[in-house]
Design a protein around this nucleic acid. Structure first.
Length: 491
RNA sequence: GGUCGGUUAACCGAGUGGCUAGGUAGCGGUCUGCAAAACCGUUUACGGCGGUUCGAAUCCGCCACCGACCUCCA
């Protein structure tokens, strides 16, 4: 098995060679969405980042169990005492059952993720389906003295934990320093320390999402589900835990604390965090009016968007930046990405059309090696794309007659492009997805033939008219040395 | 205020102590009835000031600016 992959581990802040605990098995856990509103641009980044990781690990021969949770209960809105959770609040506003809200937005999330051509994880567990597992963890924490019960709610005892273990190993935070500069928040009177966090919250009478427990009728705290589900499906120790950088603190830090307190050891070998996105240089936020859902992006229906951007344009754009850098969305940048993506897709068509010669002027195995090296270096997709564009240039040059490729090389290059573009980067040609291609193709052959006849008669008026009318109908003709090709115009 | 990250050409975005990343846009050319595409060539770079070095955009220091997290968040 190939084993030259290096990934950046947030825990050690270094690139490390990826060596799984139990090869060829790999356990990958990624924090998924809270399904209380439409999936937005921010969801696309981790989904695509970890889809790439999943695809690449699979490609190089690992058997990956990829677990991504759906949070459908109990993430508290804030630390205030009302304890109302996001999903329930949404449910009241929309006059529907909480689980109806969950279902609606889960469906949207899955649809958007399919549009982005991300593969479904191996397991997509829901927090609401793991209440018992979460309660079991709480029992252990109580037994071990890392949690305490107050008025039917259970809190994690951070100071007790910090005596035996070190809190803050992932984010570099030190408890003493945190204490000296924490803001005073409301509703912390039940907690012994402001850093304690809820493991179980007693439900207020009006709270409709509730489960029975030894402590009270209530619901689990924010961080617990990931510890419960990752342990259940990947074991006490597993290879990779991923998520957005914003989750590093406090969510992942609390996860580490809980799991470590329960298990007596750290659960995760490699932590991987993707960076955030910005829009026109600003953080995406509802208050800034630049909050864009994926449906809005795909339909162009948002004031900051000057046009529609297809799911593959978004995917390509995200892959064109390294996952640990912020990526800035703007109309200009997206249009540039769209052009680049179309160029890449078109070259694959060209590749299927060009004729082999007796000799070859490209070192295809050298190119392949560079492609693997790019991904092995902390999933450097932008570098991979730059190598693929070298290939694009070569393909176009062959079509132009200035470079040559032999039959073996052609097969090899097709395989290379197909592997990296479609299988690993997970891009797909959106144009060929349109229906009735056969009929359109046949009709276009007839039209192109008629125009060719006009051209042969030097009847430029007729040939231009055909081309213009086609353009109005959304089809662009391009004359080649022998015949013509056509494609659908954008939008 | 604390912790961390960034500042690369018109835009996006890699990267490295010495060897023009790549995409998009612009300009010039080839091809073409014209157009488009493609190909060839090409312009404006590494925030500022010091230091280390034979050599720094790349390492170090200071400064400026931007951002993230510190509160639910991808």
């Amino acid at each position: 098995m190939q084993n030259s992959l290096f990934i950046y581990n947030s825990l050690t802040k270094k690139k490390e060679q990826f060596i799984p605990l139990h090869p060829p098995m790999v356990g990958l856990y990624v924090c998924g969405p809270t399904v209380y509103s439409d999936a937005h641009l921010g969801h696309a980044r981790p989904a695509i980042t970890f889809d790439l990781l999943f695809r690449y690990l699979t490609h190089i021969g690992y058997r990956v169990r990829y677990v991504r949770n759906i949070t459908d209960v109990g993430h508290l809105e804030n630390d205030s005492d009302d304890g109302e959770d996001k999903i329930e609040k949404k449910a009241r506003l929309e006059h529907i059952e909480p689980m109806e809200v969950v279902q609606k937005y889960m469906n949207t999330f899955y649809r958007n993720m399919n549009q982005l051509n991300t593969l479904h994880p191996s397991i997509e567990p829901r927090a609401s389906g793991h209440i018992i597992e979460q309660q079991e963890l709480i029992k252990v924490l109580l037994e071990k003295g890392y949690a305490y019960l107050v008025n039917g709610s259970v809190y994690f005892d951070m100071l007790a934990y910090n005596e035996n273990y070190k809190y803050g190993i992932l984010s570099g935070r030190v408890l003493d320093e945190l204490q000296s500069n924490t803001r005073i928040l409301d509703g912390q009177d039940e907690k012994k320390s402001p850093f304690d966090f809820a493991l179980w919250k007693k439900a207020a009478p009006e709270h409709i999402m509730r489960w029975p427990s030894p402590w009270s009728e209530g619901f689990p705290g924010w961080h617990l589900e990931c510890s419960a589900m990752s342990t259940k499906y990947l074991g006490e120790e597993f290879d990779i835990h991923g998520g957005g950088m914003d989750l590093q603190f406090p969510h992942h830090e609390c996860e580490i604390a809980q799991s470590t307190a329960v298990l007596g050891k750290e659960p995760v070998k490699y932590w991987i965090h993707n960076n955030m996105i910005t829009i026109n240089g600003q953080k995406m936020a509802r208050s800034l009016g630049n909050f864009i859902t994926l449906d809005q992006l795909f339909s162009g229906n948002h004031p900051v968007l000057t046009r529609v951007y297809s799911p593959m344009t978004i995917r390509f754009f995200i892959l064109q930046a390294h996952y640990r850098s912020t990526v800035d969305f703007s109309n200009e940048a997206l249009q540039a990405a769209d052009k680049g993506f179309q160029k890449l897709m078109k070259s694959f068509d060209t590749l299927n059309r060009i004729k082999p010669s007796s000799e070859s002027s490209l070192d295809i195995e050298g190119l392949r090696k560079k492609c693997y090296e790019a991904l092995d270096d902390d999933l450097n997709s932008p570098i991979l794309l730059s190598h693929l564009f070298d290939g694009v240039k070569f393909i176009n040059s062959v079509a132009d007659g200035s470079e040559k490729i032999n039959a073996d090389g052609l097969l090899s290059l097709r395989e290379l492009f197909s592997t990296f573009i479609f299988e690993i980067l997970g891009l797909k040609d959106e144009k060929t997805a349109a229906g009735d291609e056969k009929l359109t193709d046949d009709l276009m052959k007839i039209i192109i033939g008629m125009r060719q006849a006009a051209k042969n008669n030097k009847d430029w008026q007729a040939s231009d008219m055909i081309r213009n009318e086609l353009k109005n109908a959304g089809i662009v003709l391009k004359d080649l040395k022998d015949g013509a090709e056509w494609e659908r115009s954008e939008n």
